[in-house]
């Protein structure tokens, strides 16, 4: 019984402390991924023709489950790509990301492959699963020793008619050039 009492004491103490506002030391994986998504918009070139007008928004779409919470919304607030205001849209799993400039698929989405295959050109597809590049995705996030890195498929970028800057390719962990 004393063991159980002590356990409860510890848990109770923890609960009280959990109520306090905290200032986490390291950002979370998805905080950093959100910052990367924003950065990708600066190092990839979309043809101006994909936008209906100079004032049309630049859409970052999250397909399926949203792992970012409010972080991504806060991050894109007030940001622009050329004259296009950045906005975040959330799409149902399995829906087409046509009309989006960036489409992010969470690792929970196992059928992303079918969606990607259907995507129109000019969509920068970003995912997290091991197979994402082989399924036709352009950029895949990987966790490497608790650091967020990314791989790029040049072939998929070409197919999507997107120009990826050499600066982004230099920072990539791996650049693949086979379909």
């Amino acid at each position: 019984m004393p063991m159980v009492t002590r356990l409860l004491q510890i848990v109770a103490a923890c609960m009280m402390l959990a109520g306090a506002p905290a200032n986490a030391q390291n950002p979370t994986e998805y905080d950093v991924k959100a910052a990367f998504l924003l950065n990708f918009t600066k190092f990839v070139e979309w043809p101006e023709s994909v936008f209906e007008s100079p004032s049309a928004p630049f859409r970052i779409c999250i397909v399926g489950e949203d792992p970012f919470g409010e972080t991504l919304d806060k991050m894109v607030e007030g940001e622009k790509v050329a004259s296009h205001k950045l906005v975040v849209d959330r799409l149902k799993r399995g829906s087409s990301a046509g009309g989006c400039e960036v489409a992010f698929y969470t690792k929970a989405d196992r059928n992303a492959a079918q969606s990607i295959a259907r995507e129109a050109p000019h969509v920068l597809t970003v995912g997290e699963t091991d197979e994402f590049l082989h399924e036709g995705g352009v950029i895949r996030f990987v966790l490497d020793h608790n650091r967020v890195r990314f791989d790029v498929s040049q072939a998929a970028a070409r197919k999507a008619e997107l120009k990826v800057s050499s600066k982004l390719l230099n920072v990539a962990r791996r650049v693949e050039d086979e379909p």
């Binding site: 994986e29 990367f36 020793h145 608790n146 967020v148 890195r149 600066k167």
Partner: peptide
Amino acid sequence: LKQLSIEQLSQIEVTSP
């Protein structure tokens, strides 16, 4: 985090869930 360069972002240690 958005102030950081992509090189710096690649070096940040994250807490995994």
